[in-house]
Structures are given as structure tokens and as C-alpha cells.
Design a protein around this nucleic acid. Structure first.
Length: 804
RNA sequence: GCCCGAGUGAUGGAAUGGUAGACAUAGGGGACUUAAAAUCCCCAGGCAGUAAUGCCGUGCGAGUUCGAGUCUCGCCUCGGGCACCA
């Protein structure tokens, strides 16, 4: 462009101008009833905290923005929405402190987040913005709960939960520090049984596990974490009669080959059979006081692996059907957990923990595989060795076949049955807090539990004077008589509303569907629209490998089962992003005073340089430290592109252009944004030296546009284009222009590089061999030596293998 | 303890089994400038050498291969997840 006087690049003016323009023209609006193919590109939506964003947060948002802009240019109808996961404890704490409604803080935080996001120029269609705390949204969260209830997948139970005596509230496991104290006040957390609503996620455990294999585009690490979280283990349950008592003890064993070694039994202190075992015996007092002591400690504290193993003998013996009805002493011990297996363990010398416990209390032991190390028995987890003292199996080596045979034998003898155990437990789905979705249930004296009729949804969260927890274990909602007291929808009699609310994870378990059909008041989602948009094409986020991604998969499968959605998995492609650390290598945190604010960076370098740097900083999935200095590099790139427009265009064809198109296209597709940016740099450096033709410059602007939407739009329009560059078409590369006419290949002797050859691209093998041998330096190395062979890899290398 | 990742210049990083260090930052030198900034050009893995060049070099040790940052086995370190798991 031959501009009479050169203009300076003013990022502030340019960015403000185009951001306003895009919003006014609505160029990013998702089309209704489009003929184009769809792309649903989704970010894990944020919790709008009071702290605002730091430079680590936008990394994922910029990535989806780059991706969706490219997809739009490629001719897709793009759905790239944003919303807010706004229920949760911080807003409630703010309300308690300041005596204002949590929505006040939430709305302020959302405004702040939106402002911070907007200055980096995202292509969100804000007309589809969602907010989990909006009654029009949580109406459908409550609706899903009702469907779960109808199918028997939501039930009441008296789960022991984490209770903080100072804050007088229930805490989620994630609110408890590893040392068993409350993260807010440092008080030791207790376990208390309390009425809770629970979702039967265990009914879906097998499908959640098996269907991970249908997700090839998920990172292996995330799938592995989910497999562990579900923690399915197969084994055998053995039933034991208790001597002189009408009690049967069931134990779960995952290593059936070692069952002959077991000599004693341990039962969890909170197991309901403990009292029955010791009732009226001389052991009763000791056992019960020990059980009380253990029950007083939280699960997390008890779970600490270094916790001392303690136990008390119950005075009873179990009859072991496997070892000729020998007697196994029954102990109560702190290392047996109700949450695993049956809460009762068959113990043996072949487990380090069981072995040490037996040594401490002088319980007789037996070994079924000879020791190798004299100091300790073989560990059963190895599952190898030759059995002894194992009845008819003595003398046999432990193999998969033998294990199968042994299990069949135990079952046919009637000792027990095959069984599965899961680490995942049913999902405790109620919180005694204010700021969450009310659980849509009514408790009637006559009809007992009655679901709120769907026509009465949403059950609105009422205004309340005091957000302080009540101390009774009920949510602050319980103190609002006018809300709590209602009539039973079934019999019309007096009834009370459920005052528990849902956990933070509820809204995020289905929110993505709401973007498709954000205004629907008649159904969770319109069936036709759902079919049009689902599944999500790319889901991008980090930090939620297990909980959110398992809960959402669970709800989605349930919605599939009731016909609300057409796909079994919501997110077939997951791109997991790495964190950005502070410049000092630590996590960005108020505590360390090392937070870098994106607003400041954008003010100094502009949104385009910021976006480019966030993509250039390192591989998308890697955790990398921030370095504000690095912005200089991407700022220079932009400036070079700007300056190209201030000079005369050349008429020459640029040799690297088509390579750049190919590289940028493929790298964006594969989320390799860092190398996409570097190939843009390589091309711009060349263009700066060699000059660039106007048409090539326009192509450069197009492939840079997803990364730097503002400056490219400005330059595009200054070239006389009237339509937005972001609605232009993505360039295609010409394969013939990617192949170099002459190439330089390395010449090795015995694998060591000794020279190079610059030749025409299709030079035949034989000629390459001759040319390589003719290089004077190569001759020094092959002189007087026998050439064993010459390896020629076309376009790559010539390797001459000589003797000696 | 178990399960995933990852270890490459001063730094972030690049590299379908085929010329290791692309690209970028910081650094050194130079041009321009009254000067500085900005910009542009050049240098830059280590050791030896004036140089040509040689040797070494992708956490450590073996192996496969004509050839290994890349594949295999055994370790070490760091990051993340799970953990009295029966």
C-alpha cells in the first residue's frame, strides 16, 4: 500500500475501534438454521471470583478463540459461547461478611470478568451468555434432579459428612486441608452423620469406565485419572460364620490366590456389626471406646498413610471355610475403612500393613509362598510365586489361569461369590448452604417425600436476612418460615420444603447444552437443536480431570437414557491445557504477590501481542512460567506486519508463503499454537527482507487473523476490503509451491556428519552416492577404506558406512 | 507406595528414527543518531585452536540400528494425580 505518509501502529485506538464495530455488526453471532456444517467449541466456563483474571486464565480462552476464528473462516457455523459458573462458597462468604445478597457480588464479579475478557477481543456470541444462578437456568438443573429422583437415582441417606464445629457448617472434602482441618478457620473437622441427598453415580460406574475407550481424542492422562477415580476392582467375597454367634462376616479379596494365607479378620470401627459382636462380653467396653475414638477423627486425618495402626481384639473368632474351618481372631482396627469393600478384611502375612499389625499384637501368621528376602514375606500384590500350604493348590505356580481356577473352586464349594468393588461412591449431592440451587423436594407428614411438580419449577431461592449458617446443620433457608412452610402437591396438607441446596458441581454438569438453546422455557433443550449441535467438537480446559468431567459425563449419560440428548458422550475431543506460573516459577497468588494482570499487559503491548504471546509461550498442554519480556517478541512481529503495509508491495512471489499457510492451518487444528506462531514469524522475517506482493500480504493477514484479530482487521480494511477479515475465507496452500526445487542434505560417514550436498530435489540415488563420495572432505574419511554400504534417504541424508 | 507426564543452550522452547538447538527472549558486537530509545545487520551449545578444523554434547547407564533427543530395558530428578484399597 503506497500510503503518502506512514502511519504509526496505535494498538489502543485500533483495538477499541474494532471491538466496538464487531459487537455492533454482530459478526460473531451463531447462525440459526444454517446450511453450513457446525463447530461447537467450548471452554470450561469460569467461576467469576472476586480476584479477577490473571494472565494464566485467558490461555484456554484465547486458544478456543483462535480455533473458532479459523473454523469460521473455513466456512463453519461456529458456536463459541461463554458463561458463568456462579454458585459457590466464596460468594456466600462475601454475603455473610457484608450482609448483602450473594448475587450482588456475583454480578459485580461477572461484570469485571466480562470486561477483562472483552479487552482481549474474543469472538463470543454474547447473546448466548449463561449464568448458573439465573432462575431460568437453574430451573433446568432442578428438572434434571427430578428426573434422577423419578428413576430412583436420587435418594436420601444419612451419610457421615465433614463438619466444622466453629463455622457450624458442612464442608466438602475439597474444603478440608490434608491435615484434617477446616481451610477457613483451622479447626479440626469432625465426621457427623447427617441426612443428605445422594446421586447413584455408581449405577453408571461401569459405563463411565468402559466408554473411556470410546474417547480416543482425550489425553491418556485424563482417562487414566478417571479410571483410578472409578477404581473398579474385581475379586471375591467370602462369607464367614462367627463362632457361637448368629453373625456372618463378608470380606472382599482382590487377590484370591493368597486366600489360604489369611489368619485373622479386621473389621472397621464404624461397622454396624461391631456392637453385635461384643454385646454382653468382657471385650465390649474396650472395643466400643476404641471405636468411638476412631470415629471421632475425620476420614482425611485417618487416611493419612503414616497414621499408626491400632486395634482391639473383639474376643470372637470367625470360621475360615478356606482353611479347613480354622479359627480366625476378629479385631477392630483403625485401618479398616467402611468406604472400601465390605468394611471387613481377611488379613495375612503377605500384605505389609497386615503383617506389621499382626507382629505388633502377636497374631499368628502363615505364609503360602516362600520368602526370597529373609526379613519379610512376599507381597501378594506381586501375584507370583509357587503356592504351599494351600490345600489342593499347593505346589502350583500363581498364574492368571490358576487364579481363575481357584475362584471357581471357592465359589463351587459355596465359600463366597464373585464381586466387584468401586472406589467411586455415590455422589453426596446436598449442602447446608444458602448459595446453591434449592433441591426441588417437599416433605409432607402424610405423603413423606414428594417431588415438586415440574410445572412449579423453578423453586426460587428466597431472599434471606442472614446468610450465616444456623449451626443446626440446616441451611439458612430453614429459618425462612414463609418459604419452608408450603402445601403438599399430592394431598394438599401442610408440608415443608427441602432446605438443602445442590453442590457447586450441579450447574456445570449440563451447562453446555444450555448454550445451544439458551432461552428455552419449555424443555431442557429442543430435540432438533440438540441433534444439530451435539456433541461438542472441542472441549478445552484444565484442572478438572476427574470431578467435573465425570459428573458431566454421568449426567449426560442419564440424559441420553431418558431421551433428552442423542449422544452418549458430550465431549469426544478434550484438549487439556497447562498452567501458567509466575515469573518466579511459583503459582500466581496474592500470597506471593506475583500476579500479573492481563489488563496491564494489554495496555502496554496491546491485545494482539498479548494473544500471540499466550499462544507462543510454550506447548499448549505444558505448564510454563510467564515472562513479560517475551511480549517484546510478539509485539515486534505485529509491528513488522504493520510496517510491511507502509512500504511498497513487491511483485515477487514469496517462497515461504505456502509453507506458512500449511503449517499454520495444521498447527491450529492440532492445538500446536506455539509452532504456528513461530512459522508466522519465519515468514514475516522473510517478507521483511525480500518484500511481499499485495495478494500475498492479504493471505498473511488472513492466517494471522485468528491470533491477532484487531491489527489484521485494521490492515485488511485499509487495503480497501469492506467485509470483515474474520468473515473472509481461509486460504488454501498450493502443494506444488511447498516442495523446494533444491535441497541441502547431510552427508555422514559412519553416522557422523562430515559434509553436505545442495542438489536438485529429485536427484537419483546413484548420483547422490557419487556426489557424496566426491566431496574432498568425505574422501579424507573414506580413503583406503572398504565401503560396506551407502544409505541414501531421499531428501534427508547420505550415510557412507566404511570399515574400521 | 502406585499411576500418569516431563527432563534439550543463560531462558521459553523446535525437531515424520535421518544435518540437534528452528522461532523467541535475555546477552555480545556493529550501523544509524549530538545522545538515548526504537529500528536494522552480525555473533552466539561446551572444550581446544589465530584459523581450517577436531573432540564432546538432548538427566544417568546399557541396548537395538548404517544412524537415537526420538525406540527398548534399568536407574535418577522434578511436576501432577491417587493412596491405610483389603
Amino acid at each position: 500500500m503506497a500510503s503518502p505518509e506512514s502511519k504509526k501502529y496505535d494498538h489502543k485506538a485500533i483495538e477499541a475501534k474494532w471491538q466496538k464495530h464487531w459487537q455492533e455488526k454482530g459478526i460473531y453471532k451463531t447462525e440459526d438454521n444454517s446450511q453450513k456444517p457446525k463447530q461447537f467449541i467450548l471452554d470450561m466456563f469460569p467461576y467469576p471470583s472476586g480476584e479477577g483474571l490473571h494472565v494464566g486464565h485467558p490461555r484456554g480462552y484465547i486458544a478456543t478463540d483462535v480455533y473458532s476464528r479459523k473454523k469460521r473462516m473455513e466456512g463453519f457455523n461456529v458456536l463459541h459461547p461463554m458463561g458463568w459458573d456462579a454458585f459457590g462458597l466464596p460468594a456466600e462468604n462475601f454475603a455473610i461478611k457484608n450482609k448483602v445478597h450473594p448475587s450482588v457480588a456475583v454480578n459485580r464479579n461477572i461484570a469485571r470478568f466480562k470486561e477483562q475478557l472483552s479487552i482481549i477481543g474474543p469472538d463470543y456470541d454474547w447473546s448466548r451468555e449463561i449464568n448458573t444462578t439465573d432462575p431460568a437456568f437453574y430451573k433446568w438443573t432442578q428438572w434434571v434432579f427430578l428426573q434422577l429422583y423419578k428413576k430412583g437415582l436420587a435418594y436420601e441417606s444419612n451419610e457421615p459428612v465433614n463438619w466444622c464445629p466453629t463455622d457450624k457448617t458442612v464442608l466438602a472434602n475439597e474444603d478440608v486441608e490434608p491435615d484434617g482441618t477446616c481451610e477457613r478457620c483451622g479447626t479440626k473437622v469432625e465426621k457427623r452423620p447427617m441426612r443428605q441427598w445422594v446421586l447413584k453415580i455408581t449405577d453408571y460406574a461401569d459405563r463411565l469406565l468402559a466408554d473411556l475407550d470410546k474417547l480416543p481424542k482425550w489425553p491418556e492422562g485424563v482417562k487414566e485419572a478417571q479410571r483410578h477415580w472409578i477404581g473398579r476392582k474385581e475379586g471375591i467375597v467370602i462369607s464367614h460364620a462367627v463362632e457361637n454367634k448368629d453373625i456372618v462376616l463378608d470380606t472382599f479379596s482382590a487377590y484370591p490366590a493368597w486366600l489360604f494365607a489369611d489368619t485373622y479378620i479386621v473389621i472397621a470401627p464404624e461397622h454396624p456389626l461391631v456392637e453385635k459382636l461384643v454385646a454382653g462380653t468382657e471385650y465390649e467396653k474396650d472395643v466400643l471406646s476404641f471405636a468411638e475414638e476412631v470415629k471421632g477423627t475425620s476420614e482425611i486425618e485417618r487416611g493419612a498413610a503414616n497414621k499408626e495402626k491400632k486395634g482391639v481384639f473383639t474376643g470372637s473368632y470367625a470360621i475360615d471355610p478356606i482353611n479347613k474351618n480354622s479359627k480366625m481372631p476378629i479385631w477392630v482396627a483403625n485401618f479398616a475403612m467402611m468406604g472400601f469393600g465390605t468394611g471387613i478384611i481377611r488379613c495375612s502375612s503377605h500384605d505389609i500393613r497386615d503383617y506389621q499389625f499382626a507382629q505388633k499384637y502377636n497374631i499368628p501368621l502363615k505364609e503360602v509362598v516362600d520368602r526370597i528376602d529373609e526379613t519379610q514375606p512376599i507381597d501378594a500384590h506381586l501375584n507370583q510365586g509357587v503356592l504351599k500350604d494351600s490345600g489342593i493348590f499347593s505346589g502350583q505356580e500363581i498364574t492368571d489361569e490358576l487364579i481363575t481356577k481357584m475362584v471357581e473352586h471357592f465359589i463351587s464349594e459355596g465359600y463366597g461369590k464373585k464381586s466387584k468393588n468401586y472406589r467411586i461412591k455415590d455422589w453426596v449431592f446436598s449442602r447446608q448452604r444458602y448459595w446453591g440451587e434449592p433441591i426441588p423436594i417437599i416433605h409432607c407428614e402424610k405423603c413423606e417425600v414428594v417431588p415438586v411438580p415440574e410445572k412449579d419449577l423453578p423453586v426460587l431461592l428466597p431472599e434471606v436476612e442472614n446468610y450465616e449458617p444456623t449451626g443446626t446443620g440446616e441451611s439458612p433457608l430453614a429459618s425462612i418460615d414463609s418459604w419452608v412452610n408450603t402445601t403438599c402437591p399430592t394431598c394438599g396438607g401442610s408440608a415443608k420444603r427441602e432446605t438443602n441446596t445442590m453442590p457447586q458441581w450441579a450447574g456445570s454438569s449440563w451447562y453446555y447444552l444450555r448454550y445451544i438453546d439458551p432461552k428455552n422455557d419449555q424443555a431442557l433443550i429442543d430435540v432438533k437443536k440438540e441433534k444439530e449441535w451435539m456433541p461438542v467438537d472441542v472441549y478445552v480446559g484444565g484442572d478438572h480431570a476427574t470431578r467435573h468431567l465425570i459428573y458431566a459425563r454421568f449426567w449426560h449419560k442419564f440424559l441420553f437414557d431418558i431421551g433428552a440428548v442423542s449422544t452418549e458422550e458430550p465431549f469426544p475431543r478434550l484438549e487439556f491445557l497447562g498452567f501458567i506460573l509466575a515469573e518466579d516459577g511459583r503459582k500466581m497468588s496474592k500470597r506471593w504477590g506475583n500476579i500479573v494482570n492481563p489488563d496491564d499487559v494489554v495496555r502496554q503491548f496491546g491485545a494482539d501481542a498479548f494473544r500471540l504471546y499466550e499462544m507462543f509461550i510454550g506447548p499448549f498442554e505444558s505448564t510454563v512460567p510467564w515472562n513479560t519480556n517475551g511480549l517484546v517478541g510478539t509485539y515486534r512481529l505485529i509491528e513488522k506486519v504493520w510496517n510491511l503495509s507502509q512500504k511498497e508491495f513487491s511483485t515477487k512471489e514469496n517462497t515461504l508463503l505456502h509453507k506458512a499457510i500449511k503449517k499454520v492451518s495444521e498447527d491450529i487444528e492440532n492445538f500446536k499454537f506455539n509452532t504456528a506462531v513461530s512459522s508466522l514469524m519465519i515468514f514475516v522475517n522473510e517478507a521483511q527482507k525480500e518484500g511481499i506482493a499485495k495478494e500475498d500480504y492479504k493471505i498473511l493477514l488472513k492466517i494471522l487473523a485468528p491470533f491477532a484479530p484487531h491489527i489484521t482487521e485494521e490492515l485488511w480494511s485499509s487495503l480497501g476490503e469492506s467485509e470483515s477479515i474474520h468473515l473472509s475465507s481461509w486460504p488454501k496452500y498450493d502443494e506444488s509451491k511447498i516442495i523446494d526445487e533444491t535441497i541441502t542434505i547431510g552427508v555422514q560417514v559412519n553416522g557422523k556428519l562430515r559434509g553436505e550436498l545442495t542438489v536438485a530435489k529429485d536427484t537419483p540415488k546413484e548420483i547422490l552416492e557419487e556426489m557424496a563420495k566426491a566431496i574432498p572432505k568425505i574422501q579424507e574419511y573414506i580413503n583406503n577404506k572398504k565401503i560396506n554400504k551407502i544409505i541414501v534417504v531421499p531428501g534427508r541424508i547420505v550415510n557412507i558406512v566404511v570399515e574400521g
